[in-house]
Nucleic acid binder design. Structure first.
Lengths: 209, 209
DNA sequence: TGCAAATAGATCACTTCTGATCAAATAGGA
DNA sequence: TCCTATTTGATCAGAAGTGATCTATTTGCA
């Protein structure tokens, strides 16, 4: 029962009387682990792949992604973002399937138990999943170039050094600390508290704007 | 006949035995007209909207977009680019329909006959079509910030002034000519020919890199 | 306690970028 | 023919940005 609506087109047919594709979602779940970007992979009978599922009726794509992460990788994700629709009609030999690739960014604490692979070492995946990872990484990098911590990976208060380390992990390269400080300070609100308990001059704590 | 493949899942069901959505495409066709960005709108019984259609079996999304433009607006498009999937299950009262929004950029000469509306004046549209236009404009602007003429709107050879006017039309604001020149020159190849027949010192003609 | 290592953040010289100015080159009209 | 308006593209001075240096402040260890 696909639709309860009494809709009929000019030929007296319902939408479901025409061929329809199955719609799947796949998610590149990225996290920062050990100073570098990692992606969550799962294994099924065909090899390593990104977690994914078919979209159920009455469900949005984002809901399908979150369900998939919960069921296949034990992850509580937050806000899936669409990356691309893979639509080659003969992409899947089970039939007509289009797949919507997503990016999900989570703090490392949310992915305990799942299999993490460095994004540089992720190859030999099924379908277009290596492409999806590349798209996801590029998107995440663009986000962090434009804003200090759009995905909220750092708690509510943090030092500029913590933010720098995060950006270096995401960018995959070292960033100049002086320029970084100057660019970030204008986009953050400073608190009147300082970090203590670590070696060095205490660093001011900042908050997202 | 959705699939000829003998695939059955572990419950003995084919993909088409599960509920599937109809998949539609909508396209924001942008062009530069009279020094400003315009979008192609079509009118049906529910009001003004972007051209769109349901995706047929065996067809990619891009093919569906191009078919829609040919049939509904008499436009020969080039390379549709995906923008976003609109997926609210009750978005369409005819049933479960997900819609993939696209951006198509064409030179003004390709849209003779279609109804052009300034992107600033496009409102009162059905569904999320105003949002799609905004997404399309933002995407196009980002493209032209990164590259001189990624959509090939200018012929193969052009002057820096022609390129500047194009960028101003797309950006929707005036751009400094000196900085513009400096940024662009490095991304173009100069020819040894000059523009003639217009007032002023002859301008060197450039080509895309 | 005192010294070494580490970090924060200010300051400085240097580089790069920007918009303004100006000379060169052309078309069109007086 | 000559003068004016217009545009190109180079040059220049000032603004903005960059990485290096230096000082202040803390922890950890001898």
């Amino acid at each position: 029962m696909i639709t309860k609506a009494p809709y009929r087109d000019s030929h007296g047919r319902r939408l479901s009387d025409y061929p329809q594709p199955s719609v799947a979602v796949d998610a590149a779940v990225l996290t920062v682990h050990d100073g570098a970007l990692h992606v969550v992979l799962v294994q099924n009978d065909t090899g390593w792949r990104l977690p994914g599922t078919f979209v159920h009726e009455g469900e949005t794509l984002a809901q399908a992604v979150l369900r998939s992460l919960r069921d296949k990788a034990g992850i509580e994700g937050l806000q899936p973002r669409q990356l691309h629709v893979f639509d080659e009609p003969d992409r899947d030999d089970r039939g007509w399937v289009i797949s919507v690739a997503h990016l999900v960014v989570v703090p490392e604490s949310s992915v305990t138990g799942a299999e993490l692979t460095s994004v540089d070492a992720a190859d030999g995946l099924v379908y277009d999943h290596a492409t999806i990872i590349q798209l996801a990484v590029d998107t995440l990098r663009a986000d962090y170039r434009a804003s200090p911590d759009p995905e909220g990976l750092l708690g509510s208060e943090f030092t500029l050094l913590e933010l720098l380390r995060l950006h270096e992990a995401i960018a995959g390269e070292r960033l100049g600390k002086d320029t970084f400080r100057r660019h970030m300070i204008g986009q953050l609100v400073e608190t009147d508290t300082y970090q203590h308990g670590v070696v060095g001059k205490p660093a001011k704590l900042y908050r997202r704007a």
